[in-house]
Design a protein around this nucleic acid. Structure first.
Length: 536
DNA sequence: GATGCCGGGTG
DNA sequence: CACCCGGCATC
C-alpha cells in the first residue's frame, strides 16, 4: 500500500509521507535516485513524532488547545480539522475573564483594604494603585508581604464580615464552575479540600521564604549569583544546541528553570515563581505541585544552621550589595536609600524585608546561595555570589556575549587552576572510540563545559605536561575567553567545511584482523567509526 | 567493490 | 552512553 501512496503523491510531498511503514516506503523512493531530499526525509521518517504531525490536514492548527480537548472530550473525533472550528470559538468564551461581561467596575483607592485571591486563598491587602488603563490593581498583600498586580475584577473590597465580591464568582460561567482568578489560561483541575489548602499554604510560605528579591535584575549581582550549575550550562548553550536542548529528553529537567528565556535570573527556580505570583497566579499548574516538596526535601533552612556562623545582612538592591551587621541597619539602609521615604510609605512598610538577605560568614554559603557544589576556595569568607566580587577578570570578559558572561571570571580561578589540571587528564574514555586523538581525549562533559576551549585544538600534536599546564586558567598565554568561545563556536563549521577527513594510511582493524575476526577490532572500527587502534 | 568513517538512530 | 547502521567519500 505504501508503494502506491508514494507513487500517487506529487514529488514535493514525498518528504512528508508518513505511514506506519514510513521509513520503508521512503527508502524505496530513495533507491530511485532522489538523493538528498529523500535521504533527509527518510531519516526524518524514522521519527514517529513528525509522522503523527503530518497526518493532519494542512490547514489544521498544529496546537491543540487543552481547553478544547476538554470541551470536546465527550465526543472524540477522528480528525483534528473537524475539531478546529470549535477550537477557535469555544476557548475564547470559556477563557474570557469574568469581569469583562458587563460587570460594574469599582475604583480602588490607594490604601484601600481589599481582598484578592492569592496562593489559593483569600488574602487581604492594601490597594497601592489602580490602573484604569490596564484595569489592573496593584495590591500589597499584608500577610505575604508581597506586592501583586492583578486584574481589577479579581479584587474586591474587604468587608467587615464575609466578602461580597463584585465578581459573582461561581454562577458566571456554566462551563467553569467555581471559577477562581488563578490560572485563567490553563484549565487546571480545581483542587479542593483542606489538605490541598495546606499544600498551597506551604508552597506560599516556601516561596515567600525564598529570596525572591529585586536582585533578579541586577547585572552585577545577577552575574555573581550564577550558581555553578547555571554557569556550567551556559557554555553548552553557547556551543550551539540551545534550541535542541529544550526538546531533548535528557534536558527536560532544565525546562522549568534554565530553559526559560528570562533575562538571567539568578534564582532560576524561584524567580519565575515570583513572577507568577506577582500576577496573581501562584500554584498554577500541576508541574509546580511537586516543587514545594522538592524544596522541602532540600531543606534549605536547616542547612543554614551551622554552629559558628556570623550573620550579616546584605542589601540585595541592584548594584548595591551593602553588607551590614544588624538587621535594623540593613532595613534602615534599604528604606532610606532604595525605597525612599515616600509619602505612602505605610504601604511599603516591611517591604525592605525583601531587599536584604542573610549572609553567613565563617565560610558558609549565604541564604540566597545556590547549591553548595564545592566548598569555597577561601575559608572564612562569605560565598562568592554575595559578597566577593569576582576576581578581576582580564579585560577579555566584556567581549563575550551579553548572555554569556565569561565563565572563568566567575569561577574561583584559584581553585580551578589548582584542581582542574590535576584531574583533567586522568579522565579516560572507556573505549578507544571515544578517545579522540590524544590532545582531545580527556574531556568528560563537565570538564568540557568548564574548560571548553580545550577541545578546540588547532595544531597540538600530542599530550604533554606543558599542554596540560596550559589548560590552567591562570596561564596568561592562553587566548582570552572570547576567543576561546569563538573557537568553540566556529570549530564545528571548520570541521564540516572541509571535506571528509582523508582516509588514513595506516592499516585498520578490518584490514589487520579481517572481517571474520570482527570481534577483535577496536570498538571504533566495529562501530564504523574512525579507527582508534591504528591511528594515522 | 572494498574500505573508512561521519552522521544519526535506538534503547 | 553504548551500540549499531545508512550512506558517502575514497581507495
Amino acid at each position: 500500500m505504501s508503494g502506491s501512496q508514494v507513487q500517487g503523491l506529487p514529488a514535493g510531498h514525498r518528504s512528508v509521507l508518513y505511514t506506519p511503514y514510513g521509513a520503508f516506503c521512503l527508502q524505496v523512493v530513495n533507491r530511485k535516485g532522489n538523493s538528498m531530499a529523500s535521504v533527509l526525509s527518510r531519516r526524518l521518517g524514522k521519527r514517529s513524532l513528525l509522522g503523527a504531525r503530518v497526518l493532519g490536514p494542512p490547514g489544521a492548527a498544529p496546537h491543540s488547545e487543552p481547553q478544547a480537548e476538554l470541551l470536546e472530550g465527550a465526543a472524540p473525533q477522528p480528525f483534528v480539522a473537524s475539531k478546529d472550528a470549535s477550537c477557535q470559538e469555544q476557548p475564547k468564551e470559556v477563557l474570557k475573564a469574568p469581569g469583562t461581561s458587563g460587570l460594574q467596575q469599582v475604583a480602588f483607592h490607594p490604601g484601600q483594604k481589599v481582598c484578592v485571591w492569592y496562593g489559593g486563598q483569600e488574602c487581604t491587602g492594601l490597594v497601592e494603585r489602580h490602573s484604569w488603563a490596564e484595569d489592573k490593581v496593584t495590591v500589597w498583600l499584608l500577610d505575604q508581604k508581597l506586592q501583586i498586580c492583578c486584574k481589577a475584577e479579581e479584587v474586591w473590597l474587604a468587608e467587615p464580615q464575609g466578602r461580597i465580591p463584585q465578581v459573582p464568582p461561581p454562577e458566571h460561567g456554566t462551563q467553569a464552575p467555581a471559577y477562581r482568578p488563578v490560572s485563567r489560561n490553563i484549565d487546571v483541575p480545581k483542587r479542593k479540600s483542606d489538605a490541598v489548602e495546606m499544600d498551597e499554604m506551604m508552597a506560599a510560605m516556601v516561596l515567600t521564604s525564598l529570596s525572591c528579591s529585586p536582585v533578579v535584575q541586577s547585572p552585577p549581582g545577577g552575574e555573581a549569583n550564577f550558581s555553578a550549575s547555571r554557569t556550567a550550562c551556559d557554555p553548552w548553550k553557547e556551543s550551539g544546541d540551545v534550541s535542541d536542548s529544550g526538546s531533548s529528553t535528557t534536558s527536560g529537567h532544565w525546562s522549568g528553570s534554565s530553559g526559560v528565556s528570562t533575562p538571567s535570573p539568578p534564582h532560576p527556580q524561584a524567580s519565575p515563581k515570583y513572577l507568577g505570583d506577582a500576577f496573581g497566579s501562584p500554584q498554577t499548574d500541576n508541574g509546580f505541585e511537586t516543587d514545594p516538596d522538592a524544596f522541602l526535601l532540600d531543606e534549605p533552612a536547616p542547612r543554614k544552621r551551622k554552629n559558628s556562623v556570623k550573620v550579616m545582612y546584605k542589601c540585595l538592591w541592584p548594584s548595591c550589595g551593602k553588607v551590614l551587621r544588624s538587621i535594623v541597619g540593613i532595613k534602615r539602609h534599604v528604606k532610606a536609600l532604595h525605597l525612599g521615604d515616600t509619602v505612602d510609605s505605610d504601604q511599603f512598610k516591611r517591604e525592605e524585608d525583601f531587599y536584604y538577605t542573610e549572609v553567613q560568614l565563617k565560610g558558609e554559603a549565604a541564604a540566597a546561595g545556590g547549591p553548595p557544589a564545592d566548598p569555597a576556595p577561601t575559608p572564612s569568607v562569605t560565598s562568592p555570589p554575595l559578597t566577593i566580587l569576582p576576581p578581576p577578570p582580564p579585560p577579555k570578559a566584556q567581549s563575550s556575549g551579553p548572555d554569556h558572561p565569561g565563565l572563568e571570571s566567575y569561577l574561583p580561578s584559584g581553585a580551578l587552576s589548582k584542581s582542574a589540571p590535576g584531574s583533567f587528564w586522568h579522565i579516560q574514555a572507556d573505549h578507544a572510540y571515544q578517545a579522540l586523538p590524544p590532545f582531545q581525549i580527556p574531556v568528560s562533559p563537565h570538564i568540557y563545559t568548564s574548560i571548553s576551549w580545550a577541545a578546540a585544538p588547532s595544531s597540538a600534536s600530542s599530550l604533554s605536561p606543558v599542554r596540560s599546564r596550559s589548560l590552567s586558567f591562570s596561564e596568561p598565554q592562553q587566548p582570552p575567553p572570547a576567543v576561546k568561545s569563538h573557537l568553540i563556536v566556529t570549530s564545528p563549521p571548520r570541521a564540516q567545511s572541509t571535506t571528509r577527513k582523508a582516509r588514513g594510511e595506516a592499516k585498520k582493524c578490518r584490514k589487520v584482523y579481517g572481517i571474520e575476526h570482527r570481534d577483535q577490532w577496536c570498538t571504533a572500527c566495529r562501530w564504523k567509526k574512525a579507527c582508534q587502534r591504528f591511528l594515522d
